[in-house]
Design a protein around this nucleic acid. Structure first.
Lengths: 283, 283
DNA sequence: CATTTAAATGTAGTTTAATTACATCGGTGG
DNA sequence: CCACCGATGTAATTAAACTACATTTAAATG
């Protein structure tokens, strides 16, 4: 947990002198991490051991260890007290906040994704005769992106954002088909039904969704991530960013599994785009 | 600059013993920040002053100061020495790296985006009678996503990923039309031509692209971001993540500008989705 | 190839910072 | 009003980091 937040939260529990220390640190954390225990004690107008006790109260080994933790939490961001956009925010402010919260969401996704499941999903994908990506609403864009990525691998790949088309493609699916269903909530009825239908037709179903959701239960492999829900109105749907990165991870695993010769092929796909572009003039 | 990167970059400049220190730190940075100078010296099999000299060479005041810098750069990410995926990477490793590099890309985009231009773009968007989003290839998914977002605002919005359709819509565009063109390189010929065509028809053109690109020059407002290029093969195209977040920023600015009554409307759009979902059972 | 010189590294001593043990102050309940 | 406990400070101790200097190693020149 973030040290600054922790100090803030414990303000009430501190003793009088410890609170003085806390306030000095909160006021100028950057100064604090560069100070010795003596300097900081003087700034807070307390004794050195009080500063030391303060550090211990925050579950650190001592003053140097505390500085380390503080330094990390400063680097980690929270340059904005809150990452939530307020109606009064300036363009500078909301721009920063949105990037911040997007990064925080990716971090949270990273912490919660299971690389072992990634690995098993890659297993399925590399053996697939055809791959289908399905997504509705905001996740449709992710499915499109996935198609664009996997298409380069020279695998039969298709993407649908229409439940009827999805149903139809399930009927024709078989052993060799891998369906990747993308849904943040994992509660979209249409998609959950399609997962079931696909499995009845012996297709493998990989879900990119939330833990313990109906969709996760209907899938062969549920690649789940914890992404903070978009509780307030302004907050963009960070989930689709995490989903895209998850697709990147699968694509990377796929590439790695396929070996060196396959990668030459990829390079050629990239080069094929060159003609459609204006030359970059080197200075 | 990130301390870990700095060490990596200077590896060649170090002396033999200093390199030993560098290697120990790079191998286990988390251990390093918790060690005393004596412990670290023993781990690297060098003397204490050597460690100290190593710290100074990296422009720090001494060992404690160095640890502080290192701690910050660890918090900032780069738990992996390199963010580049290697052929030998395990699932844990490449999963982590891809999330890391995505976050790093967003950070870089955040640093380089100009909030004043965001503000001007929002000006245009709020006054638009209709909004068109154009993107080709990987950026097509971003355009779709943008459509999905702005559609909720009850503005006439459309998205094309087909150059012919784009051209046609330019002809019918006029004063009140805002075109948002999305292209990482800003060198895709088809898209640059469309920017010019749109402007000839008095439409406003907002480009989400790279600085100093042909597309940026053809636009009314060029919202540019520095995103590390996908130099190596495994690296996913982080640019589309940055583009999506940029769209989020514009959408947020749009919402804020429209005021409170408009936001009620948004809430209703969200609620309209509820029926299509399975209820969340609270435990 | 020997010799000189400079750079690199280590050793031991010094200084500074952090911690501990203990004393004192201040408030609270009996 | 006093006894006790928690909070705080003082002074001594310990540990860490740094400096000055000695030694080694490598490079360069005659």
């Amino acid at each position: 947990m973030n040290t600054i937040d922790k100090i803030q939260k414990n303000l009430a529990n501190f003793s009088k002198s410890e609170r003085k220390v806390a306030e000095v640190i909160l006021a100028e954390p950057q100064i604090a991490i560069q100070s010795s225990i003596a300097t900081l004690a003087k700034m807070a107008d307390v004794s050195e051991p009080t500063v030391n006790r303060f550090c211990r109260r925050l579950d650190t080994k001592g003053f140097p260890d505390f500085k380390l933790h503080l330094a990390q939490s400063l680097a980690n961001g929270t340059p904005y007290v809150s990452r939530h956009v307020e109606a009064s925010d300036s363009p500078e402010s909301y721009t920063g906040k949105i990037f911040e919260s997007s990064m925080a969401a990716l971090d949270s996704a990273k912490q919660s994704i299971d690389p072992q499941l990634v690995n098993r999903a890659v297993d399925l994908l590399t053996q697939a005769k055809q791959i289908h990506f399905f997504g509705l609403g905001a996740s449709a864009a992710v499915a499109h992106d996935a198609q664009n990525k996997f298409f380069r691998f020279n695998v039969p790949v298709i993407c649908f954002d229409d439940p009827l088309m999805m149903r139809m493609s399930c009927i024709n699916a078989g052993e060799g088909t891998v369906m990747v269903l993308i849904s943040h909530t994992g509660r979209t009825k249409a998609l959950v039904e399609i997962a079931a239908l696909a499995r009845q037709n012996d297709a493998h179903v990989i879900a990119i969704t939330t833990k313990d959701s109906p969709l996760a239960r209907e899938s062969s492999i549920a690649l789940t991530m914890d992404v903070p829900e978009d509780t307030d109105l302004y907050m963009p749907m960070a989930s689709r960013l995490a989903q895209m990165v998850a697709i990147d991870v699968l694509a990377t695993g796929f590439t790695l599994r396929r070996g060196a010769r396959f990668r030459d092929n990829l390079k050629r796909v990239k080069e094929a785009l060159r003609e459609s572009r204006y030359e970059k003039v080197s200075l």
